[in-house]
Amino acid sequence: MKHYFNPMSRALTSDWMLKELDAEHERIVIDIQSGEQNSPEYRAINPMGKVPTLVDGDAVITEAAAICAYLADKFAEKGFAPSPGSPERGRYYRYLFFPGTTLEPLLSITSLGIKDIKPYTMGWGDMPRAMAAVESMTPVTGWALGETFTAADVVFGGTLAFFCGFNMMTASPKVASYVERLKSRTAYQESHVGF
């Protein structure tokens, strides 16, 4: 497997997942500061020119959450995802998709000073609704799906850690405790050196 990576990108999430799985791979650093992501060679791999990208044989996976889901299924024996068809799989998908489809767009536009967001016109609702969802999804103890750490924690928890770390959202005591549990994991510390 090849993991196209830059430490100043969402590739931190997929890097963390690879480290949690102890998955053998080649890391290829893309220099986004110099614009390497826009080179014809990289755009042939990822037409969006975004990082991360995972290449596994003929499979090309983009988007950090999709990479984490792919890796959890590829290494199913490691238990980072509920089995397909199980009742927990639906909850798992919610944790994987909520950050990218709801939380990140809302917090990003809010950070730009856009305040008059009508929840019925935007797919991500408004800040009170999103924060209520975050609060309801954040575990009091353990991990997103219970006592077993999964890719849901890497994606959902990693997003919370990012936004709290950059003061783009205020963490409740429950969210702050969950983020601290995530940050205590060895793989998190190895992938987030300097952050």
Rank of each mutant, 00 (worst) to 15 (best):
M48I: 09
I109L: 12
P7E: 05
T148P: 02
K74M: 00
R27Y: 07
V134D: 11
D58I: 07
P47L: 12
K174L: 06
E26T: 09
Y4S: 00
S34H: 04
S34W: 03
L106M: 09
T141E: 14
S83P: 07
K174V: 10
R10C: 11
P87Q: 08
M127H: 11
T138E: 01
K174F: 04
R43I: 06
G194Y: 01
L18S: 00
I109C: 10
A133P: 07
V55I: 13
L54H: 08
T186G: 04
I109K: 05
W143P: 01
R129N: 10
L21Y: 08
G85S: 13
R43A: 06
K2F: 00
N6W: 09
A11K: 06
F195C: 07
H25V: 02
I114H: 14
A23V: 00
A81P: 02
M1Q: 02
E190H: 10
G157R: 00
T148W: 00
T159H: 09
E36Y: 09
R89L: 09
M48E: 13
V29I: 06
E41Y: 00
G157S: 01
D58V: 06
W16V: 03
Y70N: 01
E180K: 15
P119A: 15
V51N: 03
A161F: 14
A59E: 13
P119N: 15
P99R: 00
E24W: 04
V155M: 12
T121H: 15
T141F: 06
D31G: 02
Y188K: 08
L160T: 01
E190K: 13
S86G: 06
A130R: 03
A76T: 03
D153E: 07
P128H: 11
G158N: 09
V193G: 14
V55F: 10
F163M: 12
A66E: 13
F98P: 09
A171W: 12
P82Y: 11
F80V: 06
S191Y: 12
M48N: 13
A133E: 13
F97Y: 15
D31K: 03
E180Q: 14
Y93P: 08
F98A: 04
M127I: 15
M131P: 12
A133H: 09
A144W: 11
A171R: 12
G123D: 05
M122S: 15
F5C: 08
I45K: 14
K183D: 10
F162K: 00
W16Y: 05
P139E: 01
A76D: 11
G35M: 02
L96K: 03
A176E: 09
I109V: 15
W16I: 02
Y178T: 07
T141C: 04
Q189K: 12
F98Q: 06
V29L: 07
P40I: 06
S14K: 07
Y120I: 14
G57Q: 03
S191V: 10
A69M: 05
L145E: 10
N6S: 11
Y188N: 07
E63M: 08
V179Y: 10
S39Y: 09
Y93N: 11
L54F: 09
V140L: 10
F166T: 04
Y120N: 15
E36F: 09
Y95D: 07
R94W: 12
L103N: 04
